[in-house]
Design a binder for these strands. Structure first.
Length: 152
DNA sequence: GCCAACGTTGGC
DNA sequence: GCCAACGTTGGC
């Protein structure tokens, strides 16, 4: 089993939004970065767990834990001209973008701020805190996962 | 296949 | 709102 981190701007989709969905489950659409797509399409398995991270907001932080409840399938928003995530070059017969379903497992007992994550030497290889990192979906190692959970 | 220009991300 | 860092685009 692998571990992941999912970034979302809370103004667009927050952990509260996920919590309010039926079965606390939603599809993680709109990923339009090839590296992040490859993680979702090729490596995520049902039952993998991930952190839910709030970005681009007053206090960027890890706020919860999700679980992959459905493995990758085509992201239809790429084919919908009305969607913000529409990609005119995506071909229905050869989908370019994928999404997975995630289910909220629980919120963390406390949000762990980005500011704090940066300070731990144990996390210096954690992609989230690497300078200039822009991946919206990224892998978390088992040791990073455990370390972070001990800090909640 | 190079690389400058551009748009986006995201912490601050 | 700023701006550094990055991925993508497209002319050549």
């Amino acid at each position: 089993m692998k571990y992941w981190l999912f970034k979302s701007e809370p103004d667009a989709f927050s952990i509260d939004d996920l919590a309010s969905m039926p079965r606390k489950t939603d599809h993680w659409d709109g990923v339009r970065n090839y590296q992040a797509r490859n993680f979702m399409r090729d490596e995520m398995k049902k039952g993998d767990q991930g952190f839910f991270y709030h970005s681009n907001c007053a206090e960027p932080a890890i706020v919860g834990i999700v679980e992959i409840s459905r493995e990758a399938y085509p992201d239809r928003t790429a084919l919908d001209p009305k969607s913000n995530y529409y990609d005119s070059k995506s071909d229905p017969d050869n989908p370019r973008w994928f999404m997975v379903d995630v289910k909220l497992v629980r919120r963390l007992k406390r949000a762990i701020p980005f500011r704090e994550l940066k300070e731990y030497s144990q996390l210096e290889d954690f992609p989230l805190v690497r300078r200039g990192n822009r991946l919206s979906v990224m892998p978390v190692t088992a040791s990073q996962w455990k370390f972070i959970l001990k800090k909640e």
